[in-house]
Amino acid sequence: MYAIFKREFLSYFRSPVGYVAISIFSFLAGFIFYSQFAGGSVNIGSEVISLRSFFVIIVPIITMGLLAEDKKRGTEILYYTTPVSLFSVVAGKVLAAFALYAVMFLNVVIHIIVTLACGGVFGVGAVGTIIVFFFMAFMFISMGLFASAITDNQIVSAIVAFIFILITQLLSVIGDYTGTAVTSVASAIGVNSESASAVGTAIRSAISWLDPFAKTQDFRLGVFSVSALFFLLCIGILFLYMTYRVLEKKRWSQA
């Protein structure tokens, strides 16, 4: 695992990808911080929350090549024919991308230091948002890694990862629309309005229950929910396991 982690992490810095990703992140974080600073009050928590909306751009950039490029170059054969387990390959790759995210996050650490130096507040709510940020980073990177495993084309992989993350971010909205649609369809086919809307609401809340953003929103207020973090962790692990299975499939697949 360490071998894979080391290679992937260093390869971010051997090619421009890592620097570009970090500088995009720095610019965005800097913009948010600057706008707040110019307004005279800095809420690190809301900066971190705003930064979460950029997962959709940054995660595909840093995960697209992780496995797709190996397939294209034929280097994946090393993972199968050397005594490393495929799961440690997956773990090493996800850790590398995660570590890159941690490096990016140094920007926010600098912002925190500046804020404190300028008499601002770095409260427990902000700590909450940061914890959520990293759990989400793990989850989205896992999704991106999975997207990278199912194709040997980096662009396809980036697009798939983008779609995965976008859907996750829009889960509540999707839930709303689905709920409304189901309600109106049910009414149209003659279900009475109360039970139609009950069905719609049930579907909406079922979809919204999956929304990691809704689950973790209270962290910004300093309310830490272990079950929400556990959920993020589980989804990440599920995607890692699926990635592992996709790699394993290469062995026995007869297609």
Binding site: G30, G40, V42, V114, T115, C118, G120, V121, G125
Partner: peptide, 23 residues
């Protein structure tokens, strides 16, 4: 919670500095 910065630090020149450094 109030996130207001100290008045002495919340100046235009300092925020311009932030703009230059971070962005």
């Amino acid at each position: 919670d109030s996130y207001t910065l100290a008045n002495s630090k919340s100046t235009t020149s300092l925020s311009t500095l932030m703009l230059v450094i971070f962005m």
